[in-house]
Design a protein around this nucleic acid. Sequence first.
DNA 1: CTAGGGTTAG
Length: 714
Amino acid sequence: MAVTTPTSLLGRLLDHVGNRNLNGKPKIIKPDILSLLSYGRLKQALGVLFSINKPVDQSIYAHFLQLCTDRKAINEGRKVEIHLLKFQMNPSVFLLNRIIEMYAKCGSMTDALQVFDRMRKPNGGSWNAMISGFEYLGFHENVLDYFWSMYGLGIRPNQVTFACVLSACASLMALGPARQVHCLILKWGFFSNVVLSSSIVDVYGKCRAIEESKRVFGEIKNPNNISWNVIIKRCCEVGREEEALVLFFQMHRAKAKPMNFTFANVLSACASTLGIEEGCQIHALSIRHGLDVDDYITSSLVDMYSKCGFLEEARRVFDNAHTRNVITWTAILSGYSKHGFTEEARNFFDEMPQRNVVSWNAMLVGYTQLCRWEEGLDFFSKMRREACEIDHVTLGLVLNICAGLTDLELGKQVHAFVNRHGFSSYLFTCNSLLDMYGKCGSLRSMDRWFFAMAQKDIVSWNSFMSSYARHGQSEETLRIFGEMDRDVKLNEFTISTVLAACSNILSLQHGKQLHGYTIRTFLERDIVIRGALVDMYSKCRCLDYALKVFYEVCLADIVLWNSMISGCAHNKRGKEALELFELMQESGVKPDNVTFVGILVACISEGMVDIGRWFFNSMSEKHCVIPRVEHYALMVELFGRNGCMDELKDFIGALPFEPTPAMWMLVSECCRNHGDTRLGELASQRLHELDEIGLKPINSAPCETDLGLRNSLN
DNA sequence: CTAGGGTTAG
């Protein structure tokens, strides 16, 4: 067995030297190799190894393999294997396992497999080496395959095996196998290992089986920090923020030390549930743990205060922060932006030392939320000019702008951009496109796109359906509703849209069924659903039902008050409408222009001319609400229907705009009923004139289609 | 291995 490599020649030389110096005792070489290895001189040690033409001690091979594994030095590892196999017919299973491990960590499961397959008697360690190798390299399916083969052969897994298998189940989100593995862990008494039991909690949580996850967590006798963190994180992930917070405070009472990312998780939970009280407590706790200086916790704190609308607090944390990075900056900017302080947000944006696409998007939200479409578009152009990347969120926001402007052309350009740049794989963006087509009134394009979409979720269906509802196609809305039921899980958006359609076609029967559904599914608490129910019952002439639904609400918002007031008004119960108006003001809700539509309708239905006039005057004088065309039209109706022809004439004469055709029609009708021929003739004359020019009351200004974005979208 | 931006409704 001649050794011919140069390394080996050197080795032989060294061997010779060693022999001569140490009286022919080659074993003495061993400490030399070991010290080379301990200094990490792998190549030199290999040289020495190959100079020895006989097997060396097992521990030397083990050290070699360990170093090769750490260094991911597959070629050197291979040489060690060659040396071992050259001199040993039956290397120990222990060393073969180390070789498998070495190949796996070096990324070659093919080599590992070859070793494994040639082993005569692989033991549990060999299986573990294969399984952990597969898991390390992300071959999760193989982990499960090997695990079940191992199990089939009656080889008992240990905690290492289980740790790998659970990790594989988590990656694959394989709930079934996770349950089986859970059983085996219980059966073989590994559940007391807190690492494994925490992993089980983690796997169930990852598979979104949060109930099972919580149950297993409850079974852990002494949960450690990891266990607590895992369950809290998983609760947050599936939207069980309240439970996450309860667990966090339990954790605190259990004297377990929260880790920094636990704080980050629960602060996010407070942010999304607007739990400012809990947020403050957690802030205090973070200070007590000396963690409030942590970067992640700082930005979570800023975000929590921002989202809850406590902008001064957010600002204080931000100003006192040890380090401010792009994330803290974006968090504070987003707080101002989302709460309508667009100018302040813009100041932050302009001052930021660095910006990324998230910062830009956060700023863009400021414009879209306040329907400042044009400014939003300008900002988007700026974003394109200043070479910032744009992503699927940006495109979603831009599509919102297109919808807000009902600019179909621009929307189509964005669609083309989405296709060209591969954003059509983002469901989020696809949903925004769908909504844009719907809101721009292009139901055919929307239809086509809906059926072309590769995947659809509840938002797609809701958006699709609500566009039909918005265009008065109530039967179609109900048909779609029947169809989506099979595909996705309905939510509050779905029900409120369908209820609105029921109101339109006065389908009390469907409406009542939906009301029952909302009670069974606890959706009844949703304020928009309440509003839809109030509308539905009011329109279906079941005002007492409407009032019942209304009075069960603890805190009505402006829209709900408006619904109820106009519900009363349209059901000839004007006095109750006015009573509600008083209650509304007592509750601190300020009336808006819609409220006064209801109030004036109420006055018309009760024939209360003086009160109506008083309310109309109070709009701008007392409530800072500028009367719109519809309010003037209602005043015309109020005077006209009650035969106040002189007042009507004065009112028409003092209108700040040309009376609309509808107003003239009304005037004409009232004059016939109340015998005012002169005003009636004027009305007829005006109507005649309007008829000649085609009766077009509103001449829409030509739309600016190309807003300079054609180029910026290329 | 944790933090910042978003779609659908009355």
